[in-house]
């Protein structure tokens, strides 16, 4: 399945980077404002699905660089990795840990295991949906 519409091509090329940036933005602000790993992952997959409709599954695989199922596995690994600090500290699984890194100016970068976990969710959702869509499209070709 591949579209030959010029409008779709152009739109996909312009919108996709914006969508991806927005998805990362949603991911990082998720702890304080509406957003988070699920929503970010869904927005990102929306971007890639749009690209896939415009340029086909082969091109999407190229632009993803990693196989969707590896993305999926990476997501699960991230989520599990977020349990390691608690494990090392001998606390119950998934106890949150926080680190604040000072940034230039008067701000801090909040780093935490929930954030790592959320990144894992993001990658897992993106991986899952891309697995569905790319494989289904390839099955049709």
């Amino acid at each position: 399945m591949k579209s030959n519409t010029l409008i779709l091509h152009t739109a996909a090329l312009f919108i996709m980077p914006l969508q991806l940036m927005f998805s990362v933005f949603l991911l990082f602000r998720g702890h304080d404002e509406p957003g988070g790993g699920f929503i970010g992952g869904l927005v990102a997959s929306g971007a890639f699905v749009l690209y896939a409709f415009a340029f086909g599954s082969e091109a999407t695989r190229r632009i993803l660089r990693v196989a969707p199922r590896d993305l999926l596995a990476a997501g699960l690994l991230f989520a599990i990795a977020s349990t390691i600090p608690a494990f090392l500290a001998g606390q119950p699984m998934l106890t949150a840990h926080w680190w604040e890194l000072p940034l230039p100016g008067n701000s801090y970068l909040k780093l935490s295991t929930p954030l790592i976990f959320d990144i894992g969710v993001y990658a897992a959702v993106l991986g899952t949906i891309m697995t569905f869509v790319i494989n289904l499209m390839e099955a049709d070709e």
């Binding site: 699920f38 869904l42 959702v125 899952t128 569905f132 289904l136």
Partner: peptide, 17 residues
Amino acid sequence: ILTAIVIAFGVLAFAVV
């Protein structure tokens, strides 16, 4: 509900395929 929505989507995809 948020998790339920996403899970339902996974289940739906599986069922459809």
